[in-house]
Design a protein around this nucleic acid. Structure first.
Lengths: 195, 195
DNA sequence: CTTCCAATAGAACACTGTCCTATAGTTATA
DNA sequence: TATAACTATAGGACAGTGTTCTATTGGAAG
C-alpha cells in the first residue's frame, strides 16, 4: 500500500500553485510566502514549483504577469465617454488593488529576494501603463486634460493613485473616511490636470 | 598573542551598526541586508545586533525612527511664507527619499520579515505626518488650500508625493524627464487643492 | 499490457535569524 | 594599583529558507 499524497493531474498543477500563492499573499503578505508553504497549500510537491516554474523567481514572474494583465483589463473598461472612462479607471485602480492585495504586492509593494521581472513581465507592465496613457490621450482630445506629453501625464495619474493605495495597504493612512478621501483624490487629480 | 578582531568601543557600536545598515540598504536594497552582513560592514560581532538592539527587528525599528525623524526635519523647514513652505516641503519630500533610499525603503517601500514598528516608531511616523498637516493648515489659513479636514488633505499630499517617489525608486517610471515631471506633480497638487 | 512522462518523497547544501557558551579586552571601583 | 564588573568577541547550534539531486511510482498514451 502507498502512503503517498494523491497525485495532482499535470494540467492542474500550474493553476493550483498560482492559486495557492495568491491565497497566501492575500492573507499573510510576503511573510509566510515560501516554496514549501505554497506547495503545501496547493496540495503539491515542492518540486512542482521548479518543474512548472523556474523556482520562486519564475512563480513570482507568473504572478507579476497575471497581475499586470488583470490590471490592464480593470483599467481598460471603456464606455466611449472619456470623462467617465477616466473616472472609473481611477476608481478601478483602487478596487483592483484592494481586491488583489497579493498581486498588487508583487507588482508594486514588495521587493522579493532576487526577483527581477522577465522581459515578458516588463512588457505586461508597459501594456498596462499604455492603457492609462490612452485614457489620458482621450481626455486630452476631449479637452478634459491639458495638452502635454501623455506619458508624463499618465505617470502623474499613476503616481497619484498608487501613492494613496500603497499607503492604505501599508496601514499608513491617517484619514478616517478612506473611501471619500480617495474620491477627493481623483477630483483633485482631474482638477489639477484640466485643460 | 591574539587573533581576535579589534574591539569596537561600546559607545560606538550602536552608531556603527546603524551606519552599516544604512550603507547596505542604500547600496543593495533589502536583498543582502542580513544580520551577519551588517555586522561585517560595521566591523562588529553579529551578537552586537542582539546586545545593542533586539535583533534584526530592533535594528529595523531604530532605522524606522531615525528615518521618520529626519523626514520630519526635512519637511519642516519653515520660512514663514506658507506658499513657499508647502512647495519646498514637496520638493524636500523627494529630495529626502532619493538621498536616503535605505531609510525610505524601511519606512515605505519594503515589508521586512516579521517587522512591526514599535509604539515609539509609530509615534515618530505620526509626528512626521503632523508636520505635513501643519503645513496644510497654514496653507488653508492663507487661502492657498481649500477648507476641509486637514488630516484628509494632508493624506492626499502625502499620497501624491509618495506615489511618484515610490514608482521612481522601484524603477516603474515611464516618464523621461523625471525632475520636471515631479515639479508638474506638485503644481498639479496645489492646483487641485486650491481654495 | 507495456512504455514513458512526470508528480511524489526525502535528503542534501549554503544561507538566514536567533540564541547559547566561553574567552578576553575595557572600564570602573575599592 | 589591583580587583571586579561589564561587554565585545569567536564559534557553534537550531529551525527555516531557496535550491538541487535522487529514487520511486501513479497515470496516461501507444
Amino acid at each position: 500500500m502507498s502512503n503517498r499524497a494523491p497525485r495532482t493531474p499535470s494540467h492542474q498543477v500550474r493553476e493550483e500553485v498560482i492559486r495557492a500563492a495568491i491565497e497566501i499573499l492575500d492573507t499573510n503578505g510576503p511573510d509566510g510566502f515560501t516554496v514549501r508553504a505554497v506547495a503545501d497549500v496547493a496540495g503539491v510537491a515542492s518540486m512542482a514549483i521548479y518543474n512548472h516554474f523556474e523556482g520562486m523567481n519564475g512563480l513570482l514572474d507568473a504572478l507579476w504577469k497575471e497581475g499586470f494583465d488583470g490590471f490592464a483589463s480593470a483599467l481598460g473598461t471603456t464606455t466611449g465617454n472619456a470623462r467617465s472612462d477616466l473616472m472609473s479607471a481611477g476608481l478601478n485602480y483602487r478596487r483592483y488593488a484592494l481586491s488583489h492585495r497579493g498581486l498588487y504586492t508583487v507588482m508594486f509593494l514588495h521587493t522579493f529576494k532576487h526577483f527581477k521581472a522577465s522581459a515578458e513581465g516588463d512588457y505586461a507592465a508597459a501594456k498596462a501603463f499604455q492603457v492609462l496613457e490612452n485614457l489620458v490621450r482621450n481626455g486630452q482630445r476631449e479637452k478634459l486634460i491639458r495638452a502635454g506629453n501623455s506619458i508624463d501625464l499618465a505617470q502623474l495619474v499613476w503616481s497619484t493613485c498608487h501613492g494613496f493605495v500603497a499607503l492604505e495597504l501599508k496601514g499608513e493612512n491617517f484619514s478616517t473616511n478612506t473611501d471619500e478621501n480617495y474620491d477627493a483624490l481623483l477630483l483633485m487629480l482631474f482638477e489639477g490636470l484640466r485643460a
